[in-house]
Structure formats: structure tokens, C-alpha cells
Design a protein around this nucleic acid. Structure first.
Lengths: 340, 340
DNA sequence: CGCAATCATCGAACCGGTTCGACACCCAGG
DNA sequence: CCTGGGTGTCGAACCGGTTCGATGATTGCG
């Protein structure tokens, strides 16, 4: 493999001159410039990443920490990850994907060893143990998800409160007066998944204001439990005419459950889910939904992170907490109520 | 951040001694060893990854190249990725996830710059343009997927031929004599996705041997096209009593389609899919299926890759092509036929 | 025509590790 | 008492880039 020394020799100049010719950081005569570029081309020269990182203290790699819990829906994470990797690459960065169960140790490892120029944390818990580590790290950090304490980090998340309100408003406007909300499993909340109750509490509050009855139920994340739970919920509240689902597994399970019960959507039951458009299309989810745009969140986080990583000035700017607004996408699974 | 020089000074020894004390590559007196370790601990010393990579020519990072096509089912990739990242970490490696559209350029970049000790390629096309690059690279490479030419690389894949035969056998044994096979979209084949026709052709051959009629149909990958296609296929072959589905989007769409047509599974129609167990559970796919174990594939690829990366002897061993056997998991969606 | 300013290039140092060869010390054996 | 072989430690070189300061060549101006 050719080094910059080989290129310099081939071009008949010193190593430093070759470096300057390639980087353009100092004026170089046209003649020498051409010889160096030709030599680099001929030798298929590519700078050694480790050496460059050592010299510049920049790796051009971002760390992406994702945690996967037994009872969570791993494939949904893919969209966030793609938003991150694709945007990072556009900005000249590669992505180190870390899925280690011990997030704290993983974060220490990649920041302390200077493998990355910045870190994005996903699956944020309210009281996430990784946050103090990241705040103390020399690299900037961004979060996808909202913790209790946002200080020292840029935060990006869906506006779950507004999502809850949008769902309730939509069905209320169609005339529904009794609704069921299926959330994620209770473990998710216990683990600090604030998005569960952020959506639920806002939905409950809005329902109260509108005089709508809303039954909030914790969900399940796997078959066959999730199918059972849907059945039990529908049994428990027979007068409910609308279903709000903030739980991908429950959304995926619903067609089969509805079929078995002889329920038609939207004639007998109106349904609104909360997931991403891409998911709806590729996963064939047939229900109207509140878009959660995971790729946009990942992309925003990366842009901010790279800004801070590349400019000392940007690193001093105040930290941002940015929510993206939910949007209701209709796939025809809601209609005015007709009692079951 | 503390360097090994700081540790050495703190312990009152030279840099090389500190290095040897930490690595254990030369005998060091117990006294000095303790002082060095204490100093490292006190200063929270972590070796600089770039410097170490430069000195040892080892990055302890593996590259994972995944390509995402518009008409493919991105979330399904998550399982493969987790198999890779988790196994890599167990073996002491981190994973660079590259999703760049231009796979050839991406592969060149990460191999030439020595960012990685080895590379795993996913979404292998029959005549994949990345293969010659990877063969010529100084790092070892492993594939998840079967190309036309396997030379110079270790290859891991599901035995799709056997999967096709298992599906046909299963329904034949129950008494079915006319089946429909929904594959992936035709684009996937044109792009070199051999797994589509590997399963299909083996299924057709076995059906012929058994005297079973098998209608093979190209699928669609997104809603609403995939739902339409399912309807059309069921219309086109009204006498078919069994459905084989090698296409996740079609599997996900089926409950809704069956419901709309008033079809009961398995009473009116027997269904066997091809996907992973984890997918079935988290994604609530209710049909019996042939397991594809993506995490195991990723894990096997990493193990072999790391073996080759770490031992010059292993690098000289003959290359392997290893298929994992499919296994039928019954979720009760098949039964003896009853004409529709 | 001589001196200063400008431009292009070079050499050396540095980033932070690892590793090789040399050396000092200690103890056993002759 | 001298020698030989371990042991334990050190200094220096190296990995492959970047960057600073200095130097030599060229040009402009007085």
C-alpha cells in the first residue's frame, strides 16, 4: 500500500510538499501539484486513516449507540439508523454502530479511545446512565429521544404530546366518544421510555377537555401475547369505537385479530397508529397513522453533531431541544362511528 | 486525556516499560507492574485507537456493507446487522456500518484507508461489482449471500433450495395439489438477487416430482401494490389451496387481504412463509414459516472473518461456502385442503 | 544593481502508541 | 574471582500522516 512518502518520492518532492499539494493548505506551484496528483493517482494512494486520525485528532467517524431490549421492536430501529448513516456519509463521515448491551461501557470505550468525533445516542431513558458520560466526553453528543435532563447535549425527538392530541382530535372530530389507546408494554415505561406516557398523558388530557372517554392500556410487544391483549381490550370496552395504537407490534397484530372477531375497519372500528410512513409502505401496515419520521430525526441529529464537531465556535452555541411535529397520514382506516 | 507517556511518568518508568506492563508481552517485575496499572487506573488511561492502529496495523473494527434498495424491505436487515455487531463485540471488535448507495466506492474507501480489519458484504448480487475489489483488498472478506463466483471469499447463506423443497413437501404431505408461490419482485432478480429463483426453481422442481401444480408469481414489495397482487393471484388460481410466500411485505399484507376476501387460514387456505423467528414474534406474523436465522448467518460470517483477520495461518486455509439448513416452524396456518 | 518581499519547498518535530536491540544487574556455576 | 545466562528496564526507531519554521529562489522596487 502506497504511503505519502511513496507519492513524494515518485513526484520528486518532500513528504510535506506532497501533503500540502494534496490538501491545498499552502500554495504549491502548478507543476508540482500536477506531479503529486499524478503520482498519487498512479500509486492509488489513500491516506491511512489511523495515521491521519493521530495527526489531526479527527477520525471522520461518528458513533451511534443503539440499545436493543428483549421486548422491543428491533426492526423499527432500522429507519433511525439509515437516517444517521446516510446523512453522515453525505457530510463525509462514517458510522460506528454499537449495539452492546452495556451502553455505558461502550460509550466510554469509543469516546476515551478517540475512535469517533461525536456520538449519537438512541433509545434514551429518562434517567439515562450514559448521559453523564457523554457530557464529560471531549466529543459532542446528540440524542434521539428526550431525557429528564437535556443539559449539555442536543436533543431531537418526535413531539409525542402533540401526536397524542392529534390522534384524539382526529377521532373526536369524526364523532367518536369512546376510545382505547394501546401503548407499549409497561416494562418500557419502567425502563425510562418517556415517549409512552408523554403521548398517553397528552391524549388523556385532550380527551378530558373534549369530553371523550379514553381507556389507556399497556400493550405487549410479542406474539401471541399482543394478540390476546388486543382481544381483551376490545372485550373490556365494548362501547369503544376507536382504537389508538402507539405500539408497532400491536398494529401488526391487529388485522388478524380484527379478522378473527369479524370486525371491519373502519366500518366497525376506526384505527389510528403511530409509526413511520416508510414502515407503513414496506411493512404493509394498512392503518391511518401519525408519521414519526425516524430518518428525519437521525438526519437532524447528525447535522447538528457534525456542526459542533467541526467548528469550535459551534461547540459554544447553546444546546437545542428540537421536536418534530407529527403529521396525520390517512389510509382510510377511520370513519364516523357506528356502534359495534 | 492521558497518554501512555503520562502513565509512565506517574509510575516512574519509561514509556516502553509502561507499554509492556500493560500488554504483558515481556516479563515485568511485580512491583513495576502494580505501579503502572495503578497509574493507568488513576489517570483513566485509554489507548488512543488511531495511534494503536498505526503502530499495530490493526484497527479492531470490522466493516459491514449493506445496500438498501428502494423496493427492498429495510427493517428485515436489522436482524442480520445485530448478528454481526453483537458477535463482533464479543470477539473484541467494533462495527463500521456503511449504507452508501455506491458500494464499490465505499468498499474502496474503508479498505484502502485501513479503517477496518475485515469486511462483511450483505445483499450479494450474483455478479456483484464489489467482489473483485474485496478479493484484491489486503483485508479478509466474508459474504452473507451467494454470488456466482465465490472464489477468494468465505460465503454464508440460507439453503434457499432446501427451503423451497421443505415448503412444497410440507403442503404436499397435507394433501395439497395446487399451490401458489409469491416471490420477491422481479426487480430483485434483475438486480442479481439469486435467492429468489434459487428457492423458486427448487420448489418448482420438487412440485414437478411430486405431481403438484405450482404457480410461481413475482411479488411486489410495497403497499398497496402487494395487496393487489395477492388478490390477483388468488383470483387467477381459484383452485389453489396453499400459498407459499417468499416475500415479507406479502406476508405482512396477507391478513388484511384474507380478511377482505373472507378467507380463513388454514381452513380455506394454507399458508407458509419464509422469514425469521424473531420477525414472526416481534412483527406479529401469524403464519407458519421456514426459519431463515439471519442473526446466525451474521454471527458465522463474523467468526470466520475474525479468525482470518487474526491468524496468518487461517488466512491461508481454503475458503468455505456454508449453507444453513432451513427449519419449518409451525404456527398453525396449514391444514389439509378444503376447496375454496 | 542591490535589497526586501514574496513564493515555493524542505526538514524536522509531533501525534501516541508498539517493538527491537542493548544494557545493567543479579545470581549460579566453574 | 570471573564468567555466563536470565531478568527487568530503557532508549530509540517506527508506523504514516500533518504542520511549523526556516531556507532558497524569484521577483519588484528604489
Amino acid at each position: 500500500m502506497a504511503t505519502i512518502g511513496d507519492v513524494a518520492r515518485e513526484a520528486g518532492v518532500s513528504r510535506s510538499t506532497a501533503s500540502y499539494a494534496l490538501s491545498g493548505k499552502r500554495p504549491i506551484s502548478e507543476d508540482v501539484r500536477r506531479r503529486v496528483l499524478a503520482a498519487a493517482e498512479a500509486l492509488a494512494y489513500t491516506p491511512n486513516a489511523g495515521a491521519r486520525a493521530l495527526a489531526t485528532s479527527q477520525t471522520k467517524v461518528l458513533g451511534l449507540l443503539a440499545q436493543f431490549h428483549e421486548d422491543e421492536f428491533a426492526p423499527a430501529m432500522m429507519q433511525y439508523i439509515l437516517g444517521v448513516t446516510n446523512t453522515a456519509r453525505d457530510l463525509g463521515y462514517d458510522t460506528l454502530l454499537v449495539t452492546e448491551a452495556d451502553g455505558v461501557r461502550a460509550l466510554r470505550r469509543i469516546t476515551d479511545s478517540r475512535m469517533v468525533d461525536g456520538v449519537i445516542l438512541m433509545n434514551i431513558a429518562q434517567d439515562d446512565a450514559r448521559l453523564p458520560i457523554l457530557r464529560a466526553a471531549p466529543q459532542p453528543g446528540a440524542l434521539v429521544g428526550l431525557p429528564d435532563d437535556c443539559s449539555g447535549l442536543d436533543v431531537f425527538d418526535l413531539d409525542f404530546e402533540e401526536a397524542g392530541r392529534v390522534m384524539v382530535d382526529h377521532l373526536h372530530r369524526l364523532g367518536h366518544r369512546e376510545l382505547i389507546l394501546i401503548s407499549h408494554p409497561e416494562h418500557v415505561v419502567e425502563r425510562g421510555g418517556a415517549y409512552v406516557w408523554r403521548l398517553r398523558d397528552a391524549a388523556l388530557e385532550r380527551a378530558r377537555q373534549l369530553g371523550v372517554t379514553l381507556h389507556a392500556v399497556y400493550g405487549e410487544s410479542r406474539q401471541p401475547a399482543v394478540g390476546r391483549l388486543l382481544n381483551e381490550s376490545l372485550d373490556a370496552y365494548p362501547a369503544a369505537t376507536g382504537l389508538l395504537i402507539n405500539n408497532e407490534a400491536a398494529v401488526a397484530a391487529l388485522p388478524t385479530v380484527a379478522h378473527a372477531r369479524g370486525l371491519r375497519v373502519p366500518e366497525d372500528l376506526s384505527v389510528v397508529g403511530r409509526y413511520s410512513a416508510d414502515f407503513a409502505a414496506t411493512f404493509s401496515l394498512p392503518y391511518s397513522f401519525v408519521e414519526s419520521a425516524p430518518d428525519r430525526l437521525g438526519s437532524m441529529a447528525v447535522r447538528q453533531l457534525v456542526r459542533r464537531a467541526e467548528s469550535p465556535a459551534a461547540r459554544k452555541e447553546p444546546f437545542v431541544v428540537r421536536f418534530i411535529s407529527p403529521e396525520l397520514v390517512s389510509l382510510g382506516s377511520t370513519a364516523p362511528p357506528r356502534s359495534r
